[in-house]
């Protein structure tokens, strides 16, 4: 069977502007979009660039915009799309394109770093001879958030980031904050809550739910963000009640 892909191209060394190349290749409906991209590269055009690593949706390398929506190229099969027509492959939105489908992902990792306290709370050299206890219920409070693979699909589809506030800390960073804030073992929870409510922090989220819709790991992203907001309000209230402001 023939499949046609319309692929975003940009070479910073030679191109003033981006353009699209159309490739028609042999492929089966059960194959991954990533398989198609590799086939293009290996048989048609060796200059195509994209990221890949595990090829089964756990490393988070190949977040792309496929037919207008953020998704992992290794997790989407041809038959997930209307393959009688062209499938349009573009880089993730929001990020700056370096080459073809490869974006500068550093802002993503900077945000992730920005939500963590600066002081190290745990030491690898401490001789802890016992585990800390945590009930199943306590552990479940952040289980959903642990699915995050840092692919950046949520950034590439968040209307706040793409259209309103470039500096918004972003869904994945809030998820990571939520993961620690809701972990009963965390000792610097207040510090983390303080950081996440800074300008461009958690309050920047307008609950568009698009991150939840596109998340390749089906994380209830918006819900986790709302829980974090609720937690901040609860903490404030308890501080007000005890008069310790």
């Amino acid at each position: 069977m023939n499949v046609t892909l319309k692929v975003y191209r940009f070479n910073p060394k030679t191109d003033q502007e981006s353009h699209y190349d159309v490739f028609t290749i042999e492929a089966e409906p059960s194959e991954r979009i990533l398989d198609c991209l590799n086939r293009i590269r290996w048989t048609k055009d060796s200059s195509l660039s994209f990221r890949m690593s595990c090829a089964h949706g756990i490393c988070g390398s190949d977040g792309l915009t496929i037919n207008g929506q953020s998704a992992l190229a290794c997790q989407k099969l041809i038959k997930d799309y209307d393959y009688q027509n062209e499938i349009v492959i573009e880089p993730l939105k929001y990020f700056t394109v370096i080459k073809d489908l490869i974006v500068d992902i550093t802002p993503f990792f900077e945000r992730l770093k920005s939500i963590a306290p600066k002081t190290q709370t745990n030491s690898v050299l401490a001789d802890d001879k016992k585990e800390r206890l945590q009930s199943i219920e306590e552990r479940n409070r952040f289980d959903d958030t642990l699915k995050c693979i840092l692919c950046g699909c949520c950034y590439g589809s968040c209307p706040v980031m793409v259209e309103q506030d470039q500096d918004f800390v972003g869904p994945a960073a809030i998820l990571r904050a939520q993961r620690y804030i809701f972990d009963s073992r965390t000792t610097d929870e207040n510090e983390r809550l303080k950081i996440i409510q800074k300008p461009h922090g958690v309050w920047g989220c307008k609950s568009y739910y698009i991150c939840t819709f596109v998340c390749p790991k089906n994380i209830k992203v918006t819900e986790a963000i709302l829980k974090t907001k609720k937690k901040i309000i609860q903490e404030k209230q308890s501080i007000t009640v005890t008069g310790d402001m």
């Binding site: 745990n122 690898v124 401490a126 001789d127 802890d128 001879k129 016992k130 585990e131 800390r132 206890l133 945590q134 009930s135 199943i136 306590e138 552990r139 952040f142 289980d143 642990l146 993961r179 620690y180 972990d183 073992r185 965390t186």
Partner: peptide, 22 residues
């Protein structure tokens, strides 16, 4: 065992049993 305890203290979110242990 100590390597697991080290990971646990670093924050690895191990699944827990009904007694709260790993």
């Amino acid at each position: 065992p100590n390597a697991i305890y080290m990971l646990e203290h670093l924050g690895v979110p191990f699944s827990r049993n009904s007694r709260g242990k790993i």
